[in-house]
């Protein structure tokens, strides 16, 4: 099968998944006509529509000021919905660029922060095992490396068994090697848990490595909404990968 044919088929498949989810009403996240402006300035989000299916991994790209952060904050429930409508699962978790662990609580206490029940430590232990941080269960956050801290933050997000996971440039502050490992880990965890994911990132390669769909935001509107129907694990050498990479970069104003 030629690469081009494979690609078309892949896109068709992705598109049908997308449509089916709409028909079933089986959608994890729906954003309709979301508009947000600060003061009298231009709209940061401009009548934005976006739907994410359960278990779908969506990457959100865009320049600084494109409205990525505002969209993420609205979906996370940190910013209010002023104009338009947002529906999302009850359990939503966020991993930020900074780990945002409480330095005065041990790793496991951070993981189950706000969780009820006495088996907190056991639950934390199980999830820390899953993210590969079981050996630091009693550590103080300030003694963790950047990658370890981000693993703990990921554990804290997953212990709530979210229907929707928001990742706000979670690997941006990590060194290149740690970032690769973390990307692999997130891919693994998603494969196992199948929650809907919105990954905000600047990194086109990261988006293509992980996501089912790449969405490019520009001045508060969706400029590109591209399915990435590549088989996993994905390889950079794949010509389709390269092709999609160029498309995304071009839509971000970078020509090679």
């Amino acid at each position: 099968m030629s690469a081009a044919l494979k690609r078309v088929q892949g896109e068709l498949a992705a598109a049908s998944v997308h449509a089916a989810s709409h028909e079933d009403g089986n959608v994890a996240v729906i954003v309709e006509g979301l508009t947000r402006r600060f003061g009298d300035g231009p709209a940061v989000l401009d009548r934005l529509d976006l739907a994410i299916a359960p278990g779908e991994f969506v990457a959100l790209l865009g320049h600084s000021g494109s409205g990525k952060s505002t969209l993420l904050r609205t979906l996370a429930g940190i910013d209010p919905v002023v104009e338009g409508a947002v529906s999302r699962p009850r359990e939503v978790s966020v991993v930020f660029q900074e780990h945002r662990l409480l330095p005065w609580k041990r790793v496991w206490e951070n993981v189950v922060l706000g969780q009820e029940g006495k088996d907190g430590r056991d639950r934390a232990a199980a999830i820390l095992e899953e993210v590969g941080l079981a050996h630091r269960i009693d550590a103080w956050p300030l003694t963790l490396s950047g990658g370890e801290a981000q693993r703990a933050a990921l554990a804290r997000a997953l212990v709530r068994e979210p229907g929707f996971l928001l990742l706000d440039e979670p690997f941006a502050a990590l060194d290149a090697l740690t970032r690769l490992k973390m990307q692999g880990l997130v891919g693994e965890l998603w494969k196992r848990r199948r929650c809907a994911v919105l990954l905000v990132t600047h990194d086109v390669d990261e988006a293509l490595l992980l996501a089912d769909r790449a969405v490019v935001l520009e001045r508060g509107r969706i400029r590109v909404d591209m399915p990435v129907a590549l088989e996993r694990p994905r390889k950079h050498v794949d010509p389709v990968f390269e092709d999609k990479r160029e498309t995304l970069l071009k839509s971000l104003g970078v020509s090679l």
Binding site: A76, G77, I78, V92, S93, V94, F96, E98, R100, L102, W104, K105, L113, G114, R156, R160
Partner: peptide, 25 residues
């Protein structure tokens, strides 16, 4: 404020936030 934002995404009550974040901080 980033820690306070984080506790909001975790759904912590005001009292829990004071107890777990503000006082120890």
């Amino acid at each position: 404020p980033k820690l306070l934002e984080m506790t909001r995404t975790l759904g912590l009550s005001r009292l829990d936030t004071i107890r777990n974040v503000i006082l120890p901080g």
